[in-house]
Structure formats: structure tokens, C-alpha cells
Amino acid sequence: MKKITVLKTVLIMLAIMLVSCNDNYEPTPVAIKDVNGNYKAKQIVSQGNTGTERINEFTAKDSVITFKDFPVKEIVQAVVKNPVKVETALAEMGKIEYKLNYTSKLNLNNNTVELTFLPKSLNLKIPVDGTMKNTVVILAGKQKGYFVGQDWSLRFGVIAEKIMVDGAAISPFEIIKYDFPYCLKN
């Protein structure tokens, strides 16, 4: 008797759930200007088998994403090598601002704005033993980014594919990935 009562209860609950489902999903319309705003982002920086996660903030406005504190620790480690000197150099350098250019295109089928990145090189002066290492980081946007209308989030990534120090490329060098898988507007 208990089995039949439980079975009836489960079937009734299932019927209620099916009746209450709404198949009239209406996507939230997006516009290119919706990308503009201040974001709080999950940032994953990885190189080879190692990676770090943290929360970072940036602003998107008029086809430019501006980071007030772009992550450069892995870049400095590639140049300096000595862990103690890396921390000293990072402290002396302070926060690094970086502007990432993009073009945008509306994708009405997916209710998204597609971003194509046009990164400029990042020029750094890294202090090491009383001298400055002129460092140029070649960044690339290999994948499109997306502003998603459903949850008003932005998702993108770029890579550092080459580092030049005083005109010479660091070799061997393993690319550094900068992934921002989930960025929410503040």
C-alpha cells in the first residue's frame, strides 16, 4: 500500500511540474552598447600546468576593456627567474594598466554580442638589480569573446604568446593564458 501511495505522489508531482513548465522562453534582447560597464571578473592565469585564480575588475567602454591592475606576475617570472627578485620587481612596478581593444558584432540568433580582440603589445619596465629590463609582451586574442544577454555576463580570454626583453625573445617560452570565464557587471 505504501508503494502505491508513494508512486501516486511522485506521479502527481511530475504532472504538476509538466503543467507548470513555460515553453514560451523570450530571450532578453541585447545591443552592442550593453557591453559597456564596470565588471567584476573571475580571472584565471595559467602557464603550462600551473595556474592562479583571483577576482579582478575592469571597465568596458567604447570598444576598449581597461584593466587598472593587469596580472603580470607570470611575465615578470619569465624575465627575472629568481622568486625573491620577482616579488621585489612586482612591488616596485605597482599596478599595471592595460587597454584591450575589441570590435563587436551583434548575434541575434544567440542573443549575444561577439567580441573580436585586437590586443596591443604590453610594454613594461621590469626593475632587476638596479637596471630596467625593457620588456615587450606580444598579446593575442585567438578566440572570440561573448557578452551574453541571458545573464548580462562577459566571457573572453587572451594569451601572451611572446616576450621580448631588450630586443631579444625569451626562449624557451610557454604561452601565458589569461582567461576571464565569467565577468559580471557591477
Results as ranks from 00 to 15, higher is better:
Pro27Cys: 08
Pro29Asn: 11
Val30Glu: 09
Ile32Gln: 12
Asp34Gln: 07
Asn36Gln: 11
Gly37Lys: 08
Gly37Asn: 06
Gly37Leu: 05
Asn38Gln: 12
Lys40Trp: 02
Gln43His: 07
Gln43Gly: 02
Ile44Ser: 03
Ile44Phe: 02
Ile44Pro: 02
Gly51Tyr: 12
Ile55Tyr: 05
Asn56Ala: 11
Thr59Val: 07
Ala60Tyr: 15
Ala60Asn: 12
Asp62Arg: 10
Ser63Asp: 15
Val64Asn: 08
Ile65Ser: 01
Thr66Pro: 02
Lys68Asn: 14
Pro71Thr: 03
Lys73Cys: 03
Glu74Pro: 00
Ile75Gly: 01
Ile75Glu: 07
Ala78Ser: 15
Val79Gln: 07
Val80Asn: 07
Val80Ile: 04
Pro83Asn: 09
Val86Phe: 09
Val86Met: 05
Thr88Phe: 07
Thr88Leu: 11
Leu90Cys: 02
Ala91Tyr: 14
Gly94Val: 03
Lys95Thr: 03
Ile96Tyr: 08
Ile96Thr: 14
Ile96Gly: 03
Glu97Tyr: 08
Tyr98Asp: 00
Asn101Asp: 15
Asn101Ala: 14
Thr103Val: 04
Lys105Cys: 01
Leu106His: 10
Asn107Arg: 12
Leu108Trp: 03
Asn111Met: 03
Asn111Arg: 06
Val113Cys: 05
Leu115Asp: 08
Phe117Cys: 01
Ser121Gly: 12
Asn123Trp: 04
Leu124Gln: 10
Leu124Cys: 05
Lys125Phe: 10
Pro127Met: 13
Pro127Gly: 11
Asp129Gly: 05
Gly130Asp: 14
Thr131Asp: 15
Thr131Ile: 09
Met132Pro: 00
Met132Thr: 01
Lys133Trp: 11
Asn134Ser: 12
Val136Leu: 08
Leu139Ala: 04
Leu139Gly: 02
Ala140Leu: 09
Lys144Gln: 08
Lys144Thr: 00
Gly145Glu: 13
Gly145Arg: 11
Gly145Ser: 11
Tyr146Trp: 08
Phe147Gln: 07
Val148Asn: 12
Gly149Ser: 10
Gly149Asn: 12
Gln150Asn: 09
